[in-house]
């Protein structure tokens, strides 16, 4: 598999254009459905700023069209905002965060995100504070609804992600959609997705079962290796899931990228992403 084959597969839509990066696994929260069992006590398993920037540079040269950064909570890494801005010089970056580490005096850390090629995706699971906070932690709702308008006023593009065990569409979501609009986020920037039954969600019997063909085949890089899809590097009972592991080699990025494409082409006919997982 050549590097140009990867670029052609991305151009044709055969391979998704975004590369996901798990910057770290530890988190200041411990959400009930977390794929990676992240918490303040989790092993950090973090990438370096240099690795993340190299991934962005090599991803661009391979023909990828965007970078997603997730964790853990990426903003626990002191150097993360500046690294995101540096990565955005090469490819557009979508940063996933719980938003709780940008409040109060720490808001100035968000300054690098006011960039035309950076978007910040913040989780908000319900229009009801108690319901949201039950899944995500005390005072999460209050912090998020306070942060989002400040970010938007500061010139940061914000997306909201809702992870739910309920319906992905329909009237029951309307109060939440109305709240998100009132915060200044358009419907197209409000993502609603199911809980995937991996990691802590699996232990707690939450969410939908998903196998490789259900999960978008986005190349995903973590300290543990390269995976099929952003749901790949999940952790259950303290142990990394390896079922979606592609390679332990993460750089040069051409190695996991070509392995992903070869694996994708080996899947049965009709394989697609059908659960609305994104």
């Amino acid at each position: 598999m050549t590097d140009s084959a990867v670029a052609e597969a991305i151009n044709s839509g055969e391979l998704p254009g975004r590369v996901w990066i798990y910057s770290n696994y530890h988190c200041n929260l411990a959400c009930s459905y977390c794929l990676t069992e992240s918490s303040p006590r989790s092993e950090r398993r973090q990438l370096t700023a240099e690795q993340m920037l190299t991934i962005a540079i090599e991803a661009k040269s391979l023909g990828f069209t965007g970078i997603g950064v997730t964790g853990g909570e990426p903003l626990l890494l002191p150097w993360l905002p500046e690294t995101v801005a540096a990565m955005a010089a090469h490819l557009p970056v979508l940063l996933l965060t719980n938003g709780t580490l940008l409040g109060g005096d720490r808001f100035e850390r968000a300054a690098p995100f006011a960039h035309p090629d950076v978007a910040v995706q913040i989780s908000l699971d319900s229009h009801l504070p108690d319901v949201n906070d039950m899944a995500r932690g005390p005072d999460n709702f209050e912090k998020v609804v306070a942060l989002v308008p400040r970010l938007i006023v500061s010139g940061v593009r914000v997306r909201i992600a809702t992870t739910t065990a309920g319906p992905l569409d329909g009237p029951t979501l309307e109060p939440l959609r109305a709240l998100v609009r009132s915060l200044g986020v358009s419907d197209e920037d409000h993502i609603v997705r199911p809980i995937v039954r991996r990691g802590r969600a699996d232990e707690r019997d939450l969410g939908v079962f998903a196998v490789a063909r259900d999960i978008p085949s986005e190349l995903t890089i973590a300290a543990d290796g390269a995976f099929w899809g952003s749901f790949g590097p999940s952790v259950r009972a303290g142990r990394l899931d390896t079922d979606l592991l592609l390679t332990r080699t993460i750089l040069p990025l051409s190695i996991p990228a070509s392995t992903l494409l070869a694996t994708l082409r080996g899947l049965p006919e009709g394989a697609d992403a059908s659960l609305g997982i994104r």
């Binding site: 592991l245 592609l246 070869a262 694996t263």
Partner: peptide
Amino acid sequence: SQLLDADQAPIT
């Protein structure tokens, strides 16, 4: 070291 079973066998 860990010996993987079929459930945890990497996709490749």
